[in-house]
Amino acid sequence: MNPLFVAVVTAVLGTAAVLATIRIVRGPSVLDRAVGADVLVSILVISLGVEAAVNRHSTTLPILVSLSLVGFVGSVAVARFAARDADPRAGTTRVDPQTGLVTVDRGDPSGSGGDDASPQVP
């Protein structure tokens, strides 16, 4: 294909990957990092597709199939861990806004003994 086209697409996709990596590094909570990792995986899939279109081979298409099948497993696992951390009966994680430190406070002093009386969130 056109070398200018290849250069432009490479620059755009590389910039997007760098920005998603910055979000993964800076993300305040682990869920933000999971979203950034999802975006990074989709940028990777799109760049593999562009590479297959530029070089006109279909070698990487099974890689795309498997990535689209299992690409969601990582963020699902992270979301399950974060939901267990945020359970008020098990203690919640708090992120200090200034320092970014994560503290886990376990045990609710104002909570009554009846855990079943806590409102069930969907």
């Binding site: 869920l31 979301a79 974060a82 939901a83």
Partner: peptide, 12 residues
Amino acid sequence: SAHLLARAKYRE
């Protein structure tokens, strides 16, 4: 994955 992430954030 989007549903589970949003639900984790909502529960938090």
